[in-house]
């Protein structure tokens, strides 16, 4: 047999440097913490985070503690993109053009309360990286519905039978409409893909946007060891395709031969426990349409990951 163990083969390309200290206060199995940990490995030391009100207000540590081995500046909820842009512009005014300013916001701070400032920063093509880690509800305050919450999901403010009636907002389409140089989706189930995208984004000037789907064990009603599996299922079912948009050109990064049925993804999540068979058919039809639309306008480059 010989050779390296499988896990080592998978992960030996991932940088060993750590910019998130262990012992932080994320929930067990938090895929947002795992995503950002990997993102920082690609971003490196010359990075400053601007963090708006979100789970990372807590995860980044209550003073005097800190989680990040990077400078972090906190800011009010709607101001993520604008504070980050101002910070970058302030550095530029003092002659520093190399420090990366990375904004971290949840789906609330991106899809909802932060959308105006985000849109404006994208329109001005501010030289920052904006990361939306999307756990599909206001999870830090206890799972209230956001415009990223999917159709049919229960939440603390859309309890059964008043589950969410409207589909999730398509933030990537909104971002694409701003004609920025780079936008990408990612999940922790494909860590090399996630790292490669951040490494690419670092080399691009202008507004760069990341949409990372982050399964949330307490919010979605799943076990803490299920988040990577769910992230993968989201890609394999077409719920959350992995793709990049570079100056308007779409590249699909993972292209399954056939999509797995969406029921495989929905079934294990307690937030979807009240979905009827008819609801699931409706969701499947929506995914089939959007997947085909994405295929029609994209180049494909299949990535095989273990």
């Amino acid at each position: 047999m010989g050779g390296e163990p499988l896990m080592k083969q998978v992960f030996n390309d991932i940088p060993q440097e750590e910019y998130m200290l262990s012992g932080h206060t994320a929930c067990p199995g938090c895929s947002a913490a795992l995503s950002i940990r990997h993102a920082t490995k690609a971003l490196g030391k010359e990075t400053v985070f601007v963090i708006t009100a979100c789970c990372f207000s807590i995860i980044s540590g209550q003073l005097p503690l800190r989680t990040f081995e990077l400078n972090v500046f906190h800011c009010p909820f709607p101001s993520a993109a604008s504070t980050g842009s101002g910070l970058k512009r302030g550095l530029a005014a003092m002659g520093d053009t190399t420090t990366q300013v990375v904004v971290l916001a949840g789906d609330g701070g991106t899809f909802d309360i932060g959308l105006q400032g985000l849109s404006a920063a994208a329109e001005r093509n501010e030289d920052i990286i904006f990361i939306c880690y999307d756990n599909e509800a206001y999870m830090n305050t206890g799972m209230q519905r956001s415009s990223a919450t999917p159709f049919g999901s229960k939440s603390a403010t859309s309890p059964a039978p008043k589950v969410k009636e409207n589909p999730k907002k398509d933030i990537m389409k909104i971002i694409e409409a701003h004609a920025i140089p780079y936008a990408a989706t990612a999940t922790v189930a494909y860590p090399k893909d996630l790292l490669a995208k951040f490494q690419k984004a670092k080399t691009i000037k202008g507004f760069r946007f990341f949409h990372i789907l982050c399964p949330c064990p307490p919010g979605w009603g799943v076990e803490s060891d299920q988040t990577v599996e769910l992230s993968r299922l989201a890609v394999e079912t077409g719920v959350f395709p992995l793709y990049e948009v570079e100056n308007g050109e779409v590249t699909l990064n993972v292209t399954p031969q056939t999509l797995r049925p969406v029921a495989d993804y929905l079934g294990s999540q307690r937030r979807f426990s009240t979905l009827s068979a008819e609801d699931i058919s409706k969701i499947q039809a929506t995914i089939d349409r959007s997947w085909q639309a994405l295929l029609n306008r994209s180049n494909t480059a299949e990535i095989q990951e273990g």
Binding site: C75, R89, A93, S119, A120
Partner: peptide, 18 residues
């Protein structure tokens, strides 16, 4: 695009020290 951003932009710039 708004006064909200006008001031948060300045806050960011002042974080940098500008």
């Amino acid at each position: 695009e708004s006064e909200y951003t006008a001031l948060s932009y300045c806050i960011g710039a002042a974080y940098a020290g500008a």
